[in-house]
Design a binder for these strands. Structure first.
Lengths: 223, 223
DNA sequence: CGCTCGATTGAGCCGCGTCAAAGTGCGTGG
DNA sequence: CCACGCACTTTGACGCGGCTCAATCGAGCG
């Protein structure tokens, strides 16, 4: 938002700068790294040394339930910041959904600055608030919506994060969507097909969605 | 934890002090208020003026999905702090589960202090991290566990927050548990009954649970 | 051209929600 | 002290949405 570039959930650009801003005139230059599709950025249990910003590509954060099924907790697109959720140790892992450039800033550096500069500390708190609200919204979707509504909510959420608000390039597979929405790939696929049949969306290819009737989608989400 | 009393998730005592600690030697005395069972502490959309700490009783935070069904996002017991999740405006509402004494501290006061004192800012960030991890754990439970596993997870979570780790006094109704776990009251009730049949717990009364076999409960949770 | 991986489609089943009816505990008033 | 009413809980019967299993389809690539 504004000039800060601290948004954790609003990266419309295909490719963005690799610095993390903590306030006006306080911008941290990160180290840029490249990750291949499905490569791990960090793993559950590792020491949390860095905070990350997506420059290009996309990232997912993962946790596994005790019986081994995976739950995707969030997707991060260019401009989004991730890796803040933890104390000293990561409680989840992060992987590249597609090839991604990611900018790393040392957590100790951010800690130091946040301790000295009040407005930087507030920037960090604001980022975490956004993450927290995301997680709560996610819990609401998983708890209270049926399959079609979940997929609709997912598409709307994605549409709002992309420049062209009605044409979406999905960086993730059906399996990723399923594990994010706590459904199976079959159910996700059927939901897409149904929406296409209803002229709510069209699917030129399986990774490319065109929203033809946003209202219908919003109606579906509410269900 | 430690001497700070900033824990958001660990209030074993039936009744605790009403101050919020932001660091060693930095303790904010709150204004104590009383809320009746089911009374609203704050509502979605209201300006977020305060941060709250449960002194006695219990509190739930709520959000409604677009079709009107409610989802309980968290329960707060004595010692827990809530109301941090928002920016300027509450994105959820909070109600007393049972009669509760709650201590209020002005958000502006905390903001001011956090801006000036680095360690206070870190205390706030730590509290938010804990909230965030709670929310993510909750999403994992809702997404990946069946009915019995959810109830088992709920009981274990509660058992860990109570002094007597095997005797739990539930401050909330079956309906509250159901809305927290995204189940129906009937399903929650059946899960309790089943556990009692399996000698995993006993139910001297519907609000009083005795954990007889914690291992079995942990096994159930994993499912 | 044929292989492989992901996506789609279909058939059948099961867990949990829905609806309905008792059962239980507690506060209130007679 | 007991009778009644109300709110909450438990239990049962049944239906449906989404999962499972299996086959087919389609696109990218060697």
């Amino acid at each position: 938002m504004r000039d800060l570039g601290i948004e954790t959930s609003g990266g419309p650009a295909h490719r963005v700068s690799d610095s993390i801003a903590l306030g006006p005139g306080l911008v941290l230059q990160g180290t840029r790294m490249h990750f291949r599709r499905n490569e791990e950025v960090f793993g559950e249990g590792e020491a949390a040394e860095y905070v990350y910003r997506v420059v290009s590509g996309a990232v997912r954060t993962i946790r596994f339930s005790s019986d081994g099924r995976r739950q995707i907790l969030n997707f991060y697109l260019p401009g989004d910041i991730f890796g803040l959720e933890c104390g000293g140790q990561h409680t989840l892992s992060a992987e590249a959904v597609a090839d991604a450039e990611i900018s790393l800033v040392r957590r100790s550096l951010i800690d130091t600055i946040a301790t000295q500069d009040g407005s930087a500390a507030r920037a960090v708190i604001t980022m975490m608030q956004r993450q927290l609200q995301n997680a709560q919204e996610h819990a609401l979707v998983l708890g209270r919506k049926g399959a079609g509504e979940r997929v609709a909510a997912f598409l709307l959420q994605l549409a709002d994060r992309v420049t062209s608000q009605c044409e979406i390039d999905l960086p993730m597979s059906r399996a990723d969507i399923a594990d994010y929405l706590a459904l199976t790939i079959e159910t996700v696929s059927r939901a897409f097909t149904q929406m296409e049949r209803d002229k709510t969306i069209s699917l030129p290819s399986s990774r490319h969605v065109v929203v033809r009737d946003r209202c219908a989608l919003e109606l579906l989400e509410a269900a």
